[in-house]
Design a protein around this nucleic acid. Structure first.
Lengths: 175, 175
DNA sequence: GTCTATACCCGGATAGAC
DNA sequence: GTCTATCCGGGTATAGAC
């Protein structure tokens, strides 16, 4: 299932504007008014294309999940079995869109409204590299998410060498 | 430095009410109006005790950091050198107050407004157990935070055995 | 598909009286 | 230390016309 199946052309334009808005100013900045402004229309018009605000957010979350999945799949294809490559891909994809990453992770997933199978698809590359050990995959995912989200929120001391911490974590989980 | 040094008695009462509010309904539910309601006063009265809302939030963040530090110090005292004990303590403290944990972690730290040394104190027990290897400590912290925050946001499949994932992570970092 | 008008509710914060 | 009155801003969403 792609955007084309889920959304009308106009809805896709609106979602694109919403995404730009989130990427530029954060999830909090996404309001029906600000979104309409960016499109040069009035807020009530949006409701002809999306039933409510959460539907817009869900579309962005689906995009982020799909693009993270793509990045991981590509990394796994380039370097089969390499946890480090997967970790790099995860980190790079997340930090390329930190606000979108926040939108997609700092709340419960709207599972019912997501394309079926998307969540599983996003998890699969890591699971495979972990030899289908789900417990290991969960631990590695927690590590990667922790690194990314702590960095996004500026929780590490300034100017810190995060590459080494990433390597330390990846090496630890390799055994 | 304790609460007693930082806050007047009335301000401490207000902070306590704010904390209850956050723990019950989440950081989003903390508004100057809802806080005043809980205290049986009007919102403008709060400004005689705190300069603004962020000052109230900062106090709660400081409390969370201090209590997390305490929990870790106690764990380290009970089981010197045991990473698992520290991980358990971190997890338990966080999950005892998930909303407060969110408030304290899902935004940049208001470092200038925090009691001096508090951030370092919170980091020290883990750093010691990691043999003062800061890179290792960062990786372990990321893992622990990732586990906690993903659980809080319901990101793991329902009814999943997180104890095993925790153990997997702790074992990986022990080597 | 977009508009205006509008309902309704929420938020932070200040001035000035008591 | 608390109040009332108020400012000013913001938000989601609907109805009904064009």
């Amino acid at each position: 299932m792609t955007d084309q199946d889920r959304l009308t052309p106009r809805a896709r334009e609106i979602a694109a504007a919403a995404r730009t808005l989130v990427e530029e100013a954060g999830p909090e900045a996404l309001t029906m008014r600000s979104l309409a402004d960016r499109l040069g229309i009035k807020a009530p018009s949006l409701y002809k294309h999306f039933p409510d605000k959460s539907a817009v957010e869900t579309e962005l979350i689906a995009q982020q999940l799909a693009e993270s999945a793509e990045a991981m799949e590509a990394a796994a294809a380039r370097a089969p079995g390499a946890l480090a490559a997967l970790a790099d891909a995860y980190r790079a994809q997340a930090l390329a869109h930190p606000h979108l990453y926040r939108l997609a992770t700092e709340r419960p997933l709207p599972r019912h409204a997501l394309p079926p199978g998307l969540e599983a698809r996003a998890a699969t590359p890591l699971l495979r590299v972990c030899g289908d050990d789900v417990e290991l995959a969960r631990a590695v995912w927690a590590f990667a998410h922790g690194m990314v989200i702590l960095e996004i929120h500026g929780r590490f001391p300034e100017g810190v060498d995060l590459a080494t911490a990433w390597k330390t974590g990846v090496e630890a989980f390799k055994r």
